[in-house]
Amino acid sequence: MLIPTAVLSGMGLIAGLGLAVAARVFAVETDPRQDAVNDVLPGANCGGCGFAGCSDFAAAVVDGKASPVDCPVCDDAARQAIGAVMGLEVATTQRQVALVMCQGDESVAKHSFRYNGQASCASADLYGGGDKVCLHGCLGLADCQAVCTFGAIEMTEQGIARVIPARCTGCGKCIAACPKHIVSLIPADAKVHVLCANTDKGGPAKRACDVACIGCKKCEKAFAEDPRITISNNLAYVDYENAPTDPGLVETCPTGALVFRDLNALDSDGKEVRPN
């Protein structure tokens, strides 16, 4: 009993010493600033910056190949902290979150056929643009949810994707994953949104979905001067540089495509409180 214990302890001691020596002799010199930057980064390795992961991004920042604002996930405080480490002046930026520009769930959107293939939006989109009459609507097969590293996208019971703004870091991966291109990054402070991407004319749009934007221009006309919502190609677009804030504005929309939603108002689950 004693001998095996002694032999094992001895082996452990020798191996440990070897490792300690190796760590000294073969140590790789790194810029201490790289570790400091890495500590501030979110550590999610989401790849939203275009680098292989957070430590790769930190190395790029230290080398001057990337700027602190290139990390889409960092909030303003983290960016300032990186700036402090690097001795850089970092401009304050506004937080951005993703928003799914569609409310066409099972209760309002019409279907053209029954799809029973692979559960992936991109695959369904190959078949005539998917099973919804609206060719711009959320297909609800969760390609965006699958790529979200932050658990910030949920599929509603009625079958469309919805972003949880409190968890969204604005990395933009869902935007690339959506075959319908209906996820956008918008300022988190914006409160009035057009939740529709249908560019068809009024009649077909309304036939496809009850809550479609029909391009009627009523919201556009609410602004005599200084337009903050404009209609182009039968669809209303909010000017997020100069976003409207008046909750009463949604009353002008006859279909309900224009909604008032305060993305910063959250309930205890981190989910937003639904208006109405």
């Binding site: 293939g117 692979q118 992936s120 991109a122 695959s123 190959l126």
Partner: peptide
């Protein structure tokens, strides 16, 4: 399994 559908997507 929807194999042909997989392959159509895979080719793209």
């Amino acid at each position: 399994r929807p194999l042909v559908q997989y392959f159509k997507r895979g080719k793209l």
